[in-house]
């Protein structure tokens, strides 16, 4: 390591100044590991896309098709689908990694980055140089933020490019959680949330292991809550299916995100879809429906065109939460230590 550390003044290869350079040197190992992880992730994404293309081309050359497995195409089709499924699995894991990353960012920020300095007392060294605590915290957060911004931009682009091709056989549906957390600015927003929550908890808890665990839990909780309320982030559309023969057609767009289905009564009240299920005799079921005054069914759904509104609202919420956590962190630092 020491060979990398010329003690004489030298132009910084990273173009960083002062505290940020010190942060880089302190956490060299983690930063290099993160860069390696991001590069590997991007390479894996590009790899799946290229492999998918190759498998599709090879399959097309055989003249077989998935719909038609006769004429000795059975094994070819099976093998093709196996390959496609494998690639889908890789992508699903990559999607999961996007979810785990903010948790790791939160844990690292809270524990090794901030609480460890407070726990071991090295903050006394840092703050008795010519750098204010606020600048110290800014540098601590700016370095990982810059790395995440750059790395995740590349990774998101690679993932989106890879996903665009494997739409055919097995794909991540637009309404699946991985679709939301891997698209647009959401990965960066999630990472910033981890950073903000980590900073706040690190300063509050001041003990490495406790801060690390708590920040991971808190970030994980935000991710879970957001996933469970996601469908409510943009107004739902409702389609209605009447009981009479004229109304008995459903008008749903292609590939909708069906959020809720149920029955409605003549009074406009909504009932679960299964109130009259499990009746043996049709007449009995009809009586049950009449008793409940059920006049039709409804489906609450998001059309595919709601993806971006939903996704942007989610990103916005994340950015607001991250900004809030960061503001609180800086205020706490200023109040305690000036």
């Amino acid at each position: 390591m020491s060979t990398l550390a010329p003690p004489r003044p030298s132009p910084s290869p990273t173009g960083l100044r002062g505290p940020a350079r010190v942060v880089v040197r302190q956490h060299r190992l983690v930063l290099w590991a993160s860069v390696a992880f991001l590069v590997l992730g991007a390479a894996a994404m590009v790899g799946t896309r290229l492999l998918t293309d190759r498998f599709a081309d090879q399959f097309a050359a055989t003249g077989c098709s998935i719909e038609d497995t006769v004429h000795g195409c059975g094994d070819t089709v099976r093998s093709y689908l196996d390959d496609q499924y494998l690639l889908h699995t890789v992508q699903s894991w990559a999607g999961l990694a996007f979810l785990v990353l903010p948790v790791l960012v939160g844990a690292f920020t809270a524990g090794p980055l901030i609480a460890r300095e407070l726990e071991t007392g090295t903050y006394k060294l840092a703050w008795s140089q010519s750098v204010t605590p606020a600048r110290w915290l800014t540098a601590k957060l700016a370095v990982p933020a810059a790395l995440l911004l750059a790395g995740l931009s590349v990774l998101t682009a690679a993932f989106t490019w890879a996903r665009a091709r494997t739409g055919s056989e097995y794909s991540i549906d637009w309404y699946d959680t991985p679709a939301f957390v891997t698209t647009g600015a959401a990965p960066v927003a999630y990472a910033l949330l981890g950073l903000g929550v980590g900073a706040l908890i690190g300063l509050l808890v001041r003990r490495t292991v406790a801060a690390l665990s708590l920040a991971a839990l808190a970030t994980g909780a935000v991710i879970t809550v957001l996933a469970s309320v996601r469908s409510a982030l943009w107004p739902l559309r409702t389609t209605v299916l009447g009981m009479s023969a004229d109304d008995a057609t459903i008008t749903l767009p292609i590939n909708p995100w069906v959020v809720r289905t149920g029955q409605f009564t003549s009074g406009g009240e909504r009932l679960p879809v299964d109130v009259c299920w499990g009746m043996d005799v049709e007449a009995e079921q009809a009586r049950c429906m009449a008793d409940h005054h059920i006049t039709g069914m409804f489906i609450d759904y998001h059309p595919a065109s709601h993806f971006w509104p939903l996704q942007l609202v989610e990103t916005g919420i994340l950015l607001v939460l991250a900004a809030l956590a960061l503001t609180l962190a800086f205020r706490l630092l200023r109040r305690r230590h000036g």
């Binding site: 003690p7 100044r17 040197r25 007392g121 008795s128 140089q129 750098v131």
Partner: peptide
């Protein structure tokens, strides 16, 4: 300049790194 009782220093840095950090933080 302030030197706290427990002489806090970054354990993972070398002596040269520590002096380098001093220069970076007190330009």
């Amino acid at each position: 300049a302030y030197v706290a009782q427990d002489k806090p220093l970054y354990p993972q840095l070398t002596v040269a790194d520590t002096l380098w950090a001093g220069r970076e933080l007190n330009p």
